[in-house]
Design a protein around this nucleic acid. Structure first.
Length: 154
DNA sequence: GCCAACGTTGGC
DNA sequence: GCCAACGTTGGC
């Protein structure tokens, strides 16, 4: 059982979209970064905890809790010539990109990036690091606990 | 809209 | 295999 932070641009797919989604679940398609892919492929397991993070928006931050609801499987958009996620080097025999499914646990108050930065306990979070661009990052159990219990009061 | 940081590409 | 150029991310 691990914990993760997964970024999504709310203009593309927000926590409210997840709330409204069929089965409150979504296929995390479109990741085209090897490090993020490897996390999904090699480490993410059913039931892992996920912070759903809003990025590239007026108030970036954690907007809800989710969990991994399906382990990694090939991303169909890599084979689709019409998709913005198409990868000409990927074949069905040797897919290059995979993704997990994620389902809602609960929407929470928005714990903003600015608020995360205020806490020494969270100083090592990857998402707070300068120049961080990775869309999926591991979260330490202590960080998960601090955010869900102390900040969200769950 | 700016720009720092970082990943990827491709020439050599 | 190096590394400059380029493209993208994402906070501000």
């Amino acid at each position: 059982m691990r914990y993760w932070l997964m970024k999504s641009e709310p203009e593309e797919f927000s926590i409210d979209d997840l709330v409204a989604a069929p089965k409150q679940s979504t296929a995390w398609i479109g990741v085209r970064n090897y490090q993020a892919r490897n996390f999904m492929r090699d480490q993410m397991q059913l039931g892992d905890g996920v912070f759903f993070y809003h990025s590239s928006c007026p108030e970036p931050g954690i907007a809800g809790l989710a969990e991994v609801s399906a382990p990694a499987y090939p991303d169909a958009t890599q084979f689709d010539k019409k998709s913005p996620y198409h990868d000409p080097k990927a074949t069905r025999e040797t897919p290059r990109w995979v993704h997990v499914d994620v389902k809602l646990v609960r929407k929470t108050r928005l714990v903003s990036l600015a608020e995360l930065r205020e806490h020494q306990e969270l100083a090592d979070m990857r998402v707070l690091a300068r120049g961080n661009r990775l869309s999926i990052t591991p979260i330490e159990p202590g960080e998960w606990k601090f955010i869900t219990q102390k900040l969200m009061k769950l």
